[in-house]
Design a protein around this nucleic acid. Structure first.
Lengths: 195, 195
DNA sequence: TAAATTTGCTAACGACTGTTAGGGAACCGA
DNA sequence: TCGGTTCCCTAACAGTCGTTAGCAAATTTA
């Protein structure tokens, strides 16, 4: 059986690559840096991976998958537009915090993907945004949400902006756990800062 | 008089560097790329600048200065905590949109600064954040704002997150002008999405 | 024990990196 | 017409880049 869990070493490489891409950036991380983190020569990596690009693509597309899966679950269980939004935020925050290094790579380094993957990726991102806009529109039509100029595109961008900065300051083992963060964000996003 | 406006060519270089750093990233932009954008050989740049690092530092610190200046003006004219917040958002958005390429470099590429400038930069950023926290705290104490768990640190991070994504989608000559964007953000941030 | 798989090595490739040295045109105000 | 300034060139440096070739030891499987 040649297909018995052949992912162990490769998973280690991906983990270290994620950490390095996150804190130095993809372009500023060399394969020799990555190899050194693993205690190995650069050429040795190529027994396990095919290219630096492949590493980046795997990290980015894995996260994209997670975001969509979370969105599916949120909408499947939602009982109202407000509940759908709460579940969406909870899922989005959970994905952002489960592997915050990978999330930062997903958010900041995707532009170093090469074609045709770059186009695939941006299409995927656009689809996610469109889906969120639709959720917001339904809520507005049902009288649950309102936003300036009745512009759900603006609201969707603003909402994602609010959430996507999170992995930059989130620390696992910090005072706030992901569920609590999501709850605070949900409250603030819905009610705003005014008393 | 040898000091008569000696900044022209250098300003061109900085402008092109800003554009390239923004769309490829600092590390992925070579001096030969920059030279090509100016129709010149790479070595020729060094008659005008001293290093690639210097270019990045100038872009980042110039923006930092602009943000502080805007904050000063906002607080100088404010008549209430709510008015201070509105002016703060207006100023922050104006800086973000006046040169959105530079703003993106400021927000995303500062980590490629080398010591000791990196430490200077992060100290500057922390000071800005601290100042915003103080503004929010005063507003909360005056009964103008509220935020979850009475945590102004959380609120400040969330607020900056909401604003700082803007240069990624803002387009000069788009439908919305900066003042209108700032007004919408102010409204949404204060009132939230709920009806 | 034998075969297969996994893991790693050294050596090297061609290309690209930021930067310096040293020189030469073109334009400037006096 | 002069000295100074601005601007750009070719050539080259020492180092780094991602990646391939070819080989060997260790580990796992049969």
């Amino acid at each position: 059986m040649p297909t018995a869990a052949p992912e162990k070493r490769k998973a280690q490489i991906r983990r270290h690559a994620t950490a390095l891409f996150q804190d130095r950036g993809f372009a500023a991380t060399s394969m020799r840096d990555l190899a050194a983190a693993l205690g190995v020569e650069a050429a040795s990596l190529y027994s396990h991976i095919s290219s630096k690009q492949e590493l980046l693509a795997e990290i980015c597309f894995r996260l994209a998958e997670d975001f969509f899966t979370a969105f599916d679950a949120a909408e499947a269980h939602a009982t109202s537009p407000t509940d759908a939004l709460r579940r969406f935020i909870g899922g989005h925050v959970r994905v952002l915090t489960t592997d915050s290094a990978a999330a930062q790579v997903f958010l900041a380094e995707w532009r170093h993907l090469e074609e045709p993957r770059l186009a695939e990726f941006t299409a995927r991102r656009d689809a996610y945004e469109t889906r969120l806009r639709a959720l917001l529109r339904r809520g507005a039509d049902a009288g649950a949400f309102r936003f300036p100029a009745n512009d759900e595109r603006f609201a969707a961008l603003w909402l994602l902006s609010s959430l996507n900065w999170l992995p930059m300051w989130y620390r696992a083992n910090g005072k706030l756990d992901p569920a609590e963060i999501a709850e605070r964000l949900f409250t603030t996003l819905l009610q705003g800062l005014s008393v």
